[in-house]
């Protein structure tokens, strides 16, 4: 029994799932977004009229759909972790594949949104609101892509049977990062699209 427990991935009780290093990274990323959110909020306070007016031009429906897409994708990743904890590599990879596909849906919807804005001649220099809207969403957009890349690596390893009941820190690490991407959008969507 004791020899067996030695082979299980060392995971101290009380620490979050996945590699500890990813959590440093997650909190550093959250800090970056947090500063950005704060900057948005205080810049808005000096320019309430402009922000309220420009906000009406956003496509709120696509923002909301994207929130649903990421939430669901996050849930699929939870199922992937659950699957590998049962030793079901195949299912784990399938859930991850579904999560990545939803990430793709997010990207496509977002690209339509960007396309509409750019073809309306909107750029970073249009006004302070659009500067924030574009840089916040593009910054988050790049994190979605990075998250998909991470999940794709994890999926490939899961498909080839690289994880097991005992060793699956990698799945939890990728999952934690993906939840962070979701969490950021959960704050970004109401802040930029709804609150007025």
């Amino acid at each position: 029994m004791t020899t067996q427990s030695l082979t299980i991935d060392a995971h101290e009780p009380g620490t979050p799932p996945g590699d500890l290093a990813i959590w440093f990274f997650i909190f550093a990323e959250l800090l970056a977004f947090g500063i950005f959110f704060g900057s948005y909020a205080f810049a808005r306070a000096h320019n309430v009229e402009l922000f309220n007016q420009s906000q009406l031009m956003l496509n709120r429906a696509s923002g909301a759909v994207n929130a649903l897409v990421l939430i669901t994708s996050s849930y699929f990743v939870v199922r992937a972790v659950a699957a590998i904890k049962q030793g079901l590599s195949r299912q784990c990879a399938n859930w991850l594949g579904a999560a990545i596909a939803l990430g793709g849906v997010f990207i496509v919807i977002k690209l339509f949104e960007f396309h509409a804005k750019f073809s309306a001649g909107i750029s970073l220099s249009t006004n302070t609101f659009y500067m924030f809207y574009l840089s916040l969403t593009i910054f988050h957009f790049m994190h979605v892509i990075l998250g998909m890349v991470i999940l794709a690596f994890v999926m490939a390893k899961a498909r080839s049977g690289g994880y097991s009941i005992e060793h699956h820190t990698g799945v939890e690490t990728g999952a934690s990062y993906w939840h962070m991407v979701d969490l950021v959008w959960i704050i970004l969507f109401p802040l930029v699209y709804v609150i007025r």
């Binding site: 709120r60 429906a61 909301a64 929130a67 996050s74 939870v78 199922r79 904890k85 969507f189």
Partner: peptide
Amino acid sequence: KPSQPRFVRPCTLIWLTLIALTGVTYSIG
């Protein structure tokens, strides 16, 4: 085979709640 981990059911409920709350936020907007 180990049975399904216990966190799956609560997470399913959380997922549905999150969907509903997003709907509320969207309707307000």
